[in-house]
Design a protein around this nucleic acid. Structure first.
Lengths: 247, 247
DNA sequence: CTGCATATTTTTGTATACGATCCTGGTCTT
DNA sequence: AAGACCAGGATCGTATACAAAAATATGCAG
């Protein structure tokens, strides 16, 4: 297979690292570390991220840390309040709905395009990702499973070869991880891994409409697993309660 | 009209200012000034934006300018190359296609939702925006017309009340302005203002399917006005030629 | 004990200094 | 004359110092 490599799908594009690197390599590292910690739920929504503290962890000055935090904030993963600093974003129920509405529209379309373009190598890569996800789940490594599950969606978007959609999907997937940690009703559920398998089959077969349908159903399932009833902004941690400011 | 105001649509949300402010008020100002200049084509794609120079113009230090430039780069309006600095983005033909594909999917859906939610005040606001756009065109103020035309799409997204879609549309509209300046075939064309008028009618009537269809057609028209034939990355300025690095 | 004013501490906002990198142009060699 | 090499300048990368703001703690009056 000597054809010219399609850039996006050559390596499994992780949600964590697939973004355009920041100008500074060190800021990029911090960006990725923080993002990884947020996506796999080591850092809970609402956790404060003081510049000094983060800088101390990574041995970097505040200049660098600020750059990383600002990048995260542009993606909605971190909120920065002027003169107050950064904290892990704490999506509201309304935001959660809006994010999954967006996924519901964009991802089926992306899956359809991916079905038309997926090469054998692409399919193999997806299978491997799903296998890893499966393995992580069975070994009880839920953190890793969450990241891999997101990577799967991200990889499909990369295969579709539409850079704008790919960027949107990536942002939506990352923010979804935050939503899961707040509103997931049944954490033990198997992350709908079988759905991923069925999707791969449709992609491998080049069946665009099937892929689109399966993706739509899969995302609907994800939403089903959420408890998005309005509540009084239920704070997730004690630290959160103490730093509540409105109402 | 004492009802609780719906946040998004109270004032005409300009593409330039509707974004979450940056942590620093001064950085926000610079961000907006640069964005406005880029959107209305005073700053051409490829124009370099040295930190010192920008800072001198606004009397701010590089720290502030960097924050503004990074924000712009996260939205794809500015490219930052490590150790080389920032320049106004220069979308490729492929990116242009991808951006309009995204608009083609998202905006009709957003228009449909807006049709279901638009209040009388919303419609009045849209009408006023279109009137201003019309006036700007007739007075030959093409820069202002471009901005207002973008604002129109942005306002519809705001009315729809889906914050994620609104953010996406905003980014797409802004980047579209860049695309117009590079690939517009017939600059004299009237920006399809009549299409905007028809859309308002559908929104006012609460006709979601009609709004969706009209929006889809309108965007197709916009794409029609572009010359997206592959060319050898036609550089727009001499400065650009001199700094070509690949191939 | 409660409420308020004030002092202290913590954290962010901004400017600036200095080092690193890249681009430019000139010079020397072949 | 063409190419490689080596200054010099421009521009960015990063740390740090200091100012400003917010949060917190303190102390006093009622």
């Amino acid at each position: 297979m000597p054809g010219p490599a399609r850039a996006a799908a050559d390596a499994a594009p992780s949600v964590i690292s697939s973004r355009t690197p920041l100008r500074s390599a060190r800021a990029t590292t911090i960006y990725r570390e923080l993002l990884a910690a947020i996506v796999d739920h080591r850092l809970a929504p609402g956790t404060r991220l003081p510049e000094d503290e983060v800088g101390a962890v990574y041995g970097a000055s505040r200049t660098i840390v600020r750059s990383a935090l600002e990048a995260l904030s542009h993606e909605g993963v971190v909120n920065i309040e002027p003169n107050r600093g950064a904290m892990v974003a704490h999506p509201t129920v309304a935001e959660a709905r809006s994010i999954f509405e967006a996924r519901q529209l964009i991802e089926p379309r992306v899956a359809a395009t991916a079905a038309l373009r997926a090469s054998a190598a692409d399919v193999a890569m997806l299978r491997q990702q799903v296998d890893e996800e499966h393995a992580a789940l069975h070994s009880g490594d839920h953190r890793r499973a969450i990241v891999l599950s997101g990577d799967f969606h991200n990889s499909i978007a990369a295969i579709a070869g539409q850079p704008i959609f790919a960027g949107f999907v990536r942002e939506l997937v990352v923010r979804s991880a935050l939503i899961l940690s707040l509103y997931w009703r049944r954490r033990e559920a198997t992350c709908a891994t079988p759905a991923h398998g069925a999707l791969i089959a449709a992609l491998a077969a080049g069946n665009a409409t099937e892929a689109s349908t399966l993706m739509a159903e899969h995302i609907a399932d994800l939403v089903d697993g959420l408890d998005l009833t309005e509540r009084s902004a239920a704070p997730v941690s004690l630290a959160d309660i103490l730093s509540l400011r409105e109402k």
